[in-house]
Design a protein around this nucleic acid. Structure first.
Lengths: 111, 111
DNA sequence: TTGACATATTCCGATATGGGAATATAATAA
DNA sequence: TTATTATATTCCCATATCGGAATATGTCAA
């Protein structure tokens, strides 16, 4: 085995920043590929590829209308992510003090 | 470029299921590597490697105590994930009807 | 110093990625 | 039919991944 495939689950699909952008561009609307292309300013094949991954994991639905394909977010599929991360929310303030130190450590090492 | 590195941000670090398990095992406690090893039943090098990634992205802090290293979740670093996914929550019920269809489609194709 | 314990690192292989460029497919219009 | 529009797919490459096994590093104790 190598790294978990991007199509393995929503966590992996959404790890790619551009895929998040696609979902954001869609929002609650149903858009054609070209509309997304214009909105994001990317090349069409790139948009189609990312939509392909999102579709495989079920994060978007596809509907054919003439020569267009209309895509829409299936928000429910993001639920597992929300549910996994939500329980940590209550501890944000508690770990706040140590955060600064540790982040500074990390930045030092990156230089 | 290839795939976004796992150490690029919390999204990528957490995409790996085992890394999520490590964070879950830690919870709000501070644990040594060996305690995590016992809790998860994995081999020690595997735990150390995953902790290494988590540490690089700042999802855990490390504290040396004698020959032990104590790890703790830095929950605040999960905030970006929570904040990205939370806005979609309100649309779960709305897309519910279409979800079943689409998921069945996906499962068909996987066979 | 030597040994034992706790943890990290290195080397390996198989695998999949994302981007770019080019091209294929599909549907409509003329 | 042919041309055009809309979208998907293929081929290529450089890169990192995860896991396993083995080994290195670091720290304490006798």
């Amino acid at each position: 085995m190598a790294r978990t495939p991007t199509t393995y689950d929503p966590f992996n699909a959404v790890a790619e920043p551009k895929r998040r952008q696609v979902l954001e561009a869609l929002g609650t609307q149903e858009l054609s590929v070209n509309e997304i292309v214009k909105k994001l300013g990317w090349k069409q094949p790139m948009v189609s590829k990312h939509l392909g991954v999102l579709k495989q994991v079920g994060l978007v639905s596809e509907r054919r209308v003439g020569r267009q394909r209309m895509y829409r977010v299936i928000a429910e599929r993001l639920k597992p992510i929300y549910e996994w991360v939500a329980p940590f929310e209550r501890y944000w303030s508690e770990s706040y003090d140590r955060l600064d130190e540790v982040l500074q450590e990390i930045q030092k090492k990156e230089k």
